[in-house]
Amino acid sequence: MADRIQPNPLIPPAAALPAAAAASSREPPAEVAFDIADLSLWYGSRQALYEVTIQLPARRVTAIIGPSGCGKSTFLRALNRMHELTPGTRMTGRLRLFGQDLYSPGVDPTHVRRRVGMVFQKSNPFPTMSIAENVLAGLRLNGVRDPALLRERLEQALRMAALWDEVKDVLGRPGVSLSGGQQQRVCIARALAIEPEIVLMDEPCSALDPIATAKIEELIRDLRTRYTVIIVTHNMQQAARVSDRTAFFYLGRLVEVDETRTIFMKPANPQTEAYVSGRFG
């Protein structure tokens, strides 16, 4: 990673910036998907997040960057209440999705997760299921039986995940028989098939080779037209390539959030600058 230091290749020349980043600054301010205020989170007695206040716009890609252990995955998991699976977690603060408080007592976390889908770092197609069964698992196990609808959603989800052409003739094969990159796209298709409003991605490319990574990055940029995407990534080039906005987390605090272009070219905070220019982290 020595090549990160100088000149800084992470700051793409203006012409090479993703069209989206440039375009989004021209568009009117987007609708807010997540409205989060004073979010703090503890694992037992250890505090992982400190009063995070942030708004995440709808139908945009927001990247969350920061060094290991900065709380970015924890933050992501709080967005669909997945952190509650870890025993001993405690959370304070307010988290609204399109105006609805996701943590009010009447809200079932299962329903939250139907609205807020998630793709994990390690691809995890269900080993006992075929490709088609994997993609449709979320629908079937939530009680959707209509074969016509299932067939339609299967193709739609696989097309959105840019996988349809590769697997349309082998839909009955086990999901785990595919390559790593294809497996990850099956998982993306599986998340998209239930038509969530938000797609959370926790380092979705970290286990993939550059070609598979490029495919998934392209897919993320395409998803923006219909979905709100929030992606945690270790890879700053990736954040620069796929996201409209970038949030920098450090030691459990949100340091800065802004248009991706601004974060990488002239961040307001010196810590952000030090991180994106590769001086620490």
Partner: peptide, 13 residues
């Protein structure tokens, strides 16, 4: 990971 993936699809426990 399989449990988490399934939970993230909003499937009942």
């Amino acid at each position: 990971g399989y449990r988490e993936a399934a939970l993230a699809l909003g499937i009942a426990r």
